[in-house]
Design a protein around this nucleic acid. Sequence first.
DNA 1: TCATTTAATTCAACCGTTGAACAAATTGCG
DNA 2: CGCAATTTGTTCAACGGTTGAATTAAATGA
Lengths: 419, 419
Amino acid sequence: MIAVWHCQGVTSPSTAGAVRQGSLRELNLAVVLRRIATADRPPSRAEIAAETGLTRATVSAVVDDLIGGRLVAEAGPAPRTGAGRPARGLVLAGDGPAGLGLEVNVDYLAACVVDLAGTVRHHVVRRADLRPVSPADALARLAALAADARAAAARQGLTLAGAALAVPGLVDAGGLVRLAPNLGWRDVDVPALLAGHRLTEPVDGVPPLVVENEANLAALGELHAGPPGSASFLQISGEIGIGAGIVLDGRLYRGARGWSGEIGHIPVHPEGRPCRCGGRGCLERYAGQEVVLAAAGLAGADLPADTAATRLAELAAAGDPATRTALADAGTALGVAVAGVVNLLDLDTVVLGGGYAPLAPWLRPPVVAELSRRVLTAAWSPVTVRPAALGARSAAVGGAASVVRRIVDRPVGWLAHSG
Amino acid sequence: MIAVWHCQGVTSPSTAGAVRQGSLRELNLAVVLRRIATADRPPSRAEIAAETGLTRATVSAVVDDLIGGRLVAEAGPAPRTGAGRPARGLVLAGDGPAGLGLEVNVDYLAACVVDLAGTVRHHVVRRADLRPVSPADALARLAALAADARAAAARQGLTLAGAALAVPGLVDAGGLVRLAPNLGWRDVDVPALLAGHRLTEPVDGVPPLVVENEANLAALGELHAGPPGSASFLQISGEIGIGAGIVLDGRLYRGARGWSGEIGHIPVHPEGRPCRCGGRGCLERYAGQEVVLAAAGLAGADLPADTAATRLAELAAAGDPATRTALADAGTALGVAVAGVVNLLDLDTVVLGGGYAPLAPWLRPPVVAELSRRVLTAAWSPVTVRPAALGARSAAVGGAASVVRRIVDRPVGWLAHSG
DNA sequence: TCATTTAATTCAACCGTTGAACAAATTGCG
DNA sequence: CGCAATTTGTTCAACGGTTGAATTAAATGA
C-alpha cells in the first residue's frame, strides 16, 4: 500500500500554522481591516460585527487598535431614517502607510506611490534609453526617482512601508535578475545594487524590496484595478518578447521557479521560423513587436517600445493596409496560442496589456475569432478579451499595491512599527 | 485615481475568516493532526510542541482530544539512549474515518477505500462497457460497488466519511456532468441519480459526494503518492481525448468554471487536421489514442481504452516499427504542446498517466527532446518527465484521499460526529 | 541505589472573545 | 416638547484556551 501523506513541495511557516493566544487578535485585525478595505461604502462597527460573526465588543476593540495605528479613520455619522443611534462609518486612513512601486524598462524608469485605499498619490515616468546603460547606473537613476517619491509621500503624511520593482525579465527568489534580454541584463543582483539606498521605512513582515517580473506586477495591478468579475485571467504584454502575467483564483501564479508567463515561446508553427530561444515557430516570431514592425514596413526604425506601439496604432487608425494586415496576422497567431492556454487553464478573461494595449482594437477581432473556433467551451461561455484598465503604468501600480496588500493582510507588523 | 480594493472573484466563507474563541482549538487540532500525518516517523508530544511553537501542555490537551475521537493512536515508547522519560510516538488511527473513492470510465467501474494514513484498504475494479448503458444504470451499478466497499470498510472498523466520484468529462460545481463525450453523457445530474443510495456517514464539513473530472482526481492522487519534490506539475492522461490534471503550488487547479485540463485541444498545427471540437490541428488529432492505433494498423479494432494502451505497449516492446513510429510521432506532438505549457506555467515535472502510463518508455524520449529544444529554461533546469506512480487506479485513490484530506484539515467535524 | 535527564501532566495566571447590561444618540409619535 | 422605541457603541464579569512554571513519571547510567 502506498502512503499518501508525504505532501511535496509545500513548506510551512516556522510555527506551522499553529494559532497562539496572540494570533487571535492578529488575525482579527486583518479580518476587520480587510472588511473596511473592500466595503462598497464605509461600514460601521455593528455592520462589521454582523458580517464577520465577531461581537460588537470585539470589533470595537479591534477598531480602536486600527485607529490608534493610523490604518483606519472614522467618517462622519451617516444620516439615517427611523430611530436609533447613528452609525459611524470607517474608512482606510489616507495618511498612514503607502507602497512604493518602481519600474525599469527598455526606455523608461517609473516610480509611484499608492496609499492604503489604492489611490495613486505620486507617479513619475522618466524617459531614457537604458539598453546602453549598466545595471548599476540604471538602478542609481531609479534610486533618485525613489528618493523623490519618498519625499513627496512624506509631504502628504504617508510612510513608505516597502517597495516593489518591476523588471522585464526572469527573476529568482531573492531578487536576482537571471535574464532580462531586452535590457541586456544577466545575473543582476538588484537588491545588492540598491543596498546603499534607503527606499522605505522598515516594517515588520514587509520586505523592503521585492523584485518581480513586470508582467506579473502588471497582472497584480489589473487584478485590483480591473472591472469586477474574474479571478482568473491572463494578461499579455507584447514588446520584443511576449510575456504574460497569470492570475489564477485571485492569486498571481509565479511558477515553480518564478519563471512563469513565457507565452512568447509557445510554439504556434512547430517547424516554422527559428527563434532566438533555440526553438522554432514560437509565438514571438509571429506576433512580437519586431515582426509586426517589419511587416508594417517599419523595420530598422529603432523606435522605443511604447513609441513603436503608438506608431503602429496611428498607422492602423489611418487605415494603412500593411499595418492592418500585420496586426491581423499577429492577432491570429496570438489567438492560436491563447486558445490553447484557455483550453488548458479554463480562463474566462484575457487582457491585452503592455505594448498590446494601444493595439487592442486591431488585435482583438482575430483573437476573438480564433478563440471562438478553437476553445472547447466557447459556445457556452465566451472568453472576454479586453485592453488593460491601467494602461502603461500597471506594473509600477501593481507593485505598490502589492506592498499595501501586505499591510492589510497583516496589520500587526505596521502597528508594531507605529505604536 | 483608481481604487484597487475591489477584489474580484474571491468569495469569503460566512464568517469572513474571523477567528472566534473556539477557532483556537479547532485550528490547533488541525495543526497537530497535520503534523502527525506528515511526520516521517511517529512524533512525540514534545516534538510536536517544539515544531509548532505551542506549549507541551497545549499539545497534550489537543492530542487527548484527537485520541478520544479515534483520529490518533499512541505507539509504543521508542527505545532511547541516555537518561530521560521515553517518548510516546503518535500515529494516525487505522480504525477511524476513511474516504470512499469511486470511478466511472468507458470500460470499467471502480471503488476503493483509503484510511487516514493513506493506506488503500479496499479496491475493486469491475469491467463493463458503459457506453451503451444509461447514466442511471451505470450509477446504479456503481452504487452496488459502493455498498460492497462500505461493508468491507465496516468490517475493518472504518467509517466512510465522504465519497468522491471520478468521471471522464467536464463537471460543474454541484456535480452536474456537463459533457463526458467518451461515455456519451451530457448534462447528467450525478448527485440526484445517486441520492437514493446511502454511500457514507454524514460528517460535518465533508460533502457526502463530490463529483470531479478524473484527470483532476488522478493528479490529486499523484500529488500525494508521487515522489517528493514537485508542488507544480501536469499530469496528462491520453485516451480518445487527452486530458490533464494541473497541480500548481501544491493545489489542484480547476479553472474558472471547473473545466481546466483540456490539453487535447491545444493547437499544434494551426491549420492541420480538423478536430471534433470545431478547431483544426488539435493535439488529440496527433497524439490521441485513436490516431496512434490507426498509425499502428489497429484502427477499427474497437478495443477498450486500457486494453488498447496495453496492446500498443506490447507491440512497441516487440519492436513493431509502425507502432514505434506512431508513438514517436505522438510523443513529438505531445512534446510541442507540453513545451508551450511549461514555458507558460514554469512547471518542473510532467507526469504521463492514464493510457499514457504504459506507453511512457516510448513517449518519453521524443517529449524530452522537444522540451530540451523549446523550453526557454531547459538548459538551466530540465523538466522531469515520468510515468504516474499510482498507475490506473490513481483517480479513485485520489478521490478517496481528498475526502480523508478534509478530515485532517478540519478534525472538529469528525470529532463532533463521533464524540 | 540514586542523580540526571527528558517527556508528560497539572496548575494558576493571562489574553482576548463573549453575552449581557448599560450608555449614547437619534427618530417619531402623542 | 417630552418620552418611548430603536439602533449603535461601550463597559463588564465570565469563559475558553493557551501559557510558563512546577510537578510527576519513566527511563538511563554512574
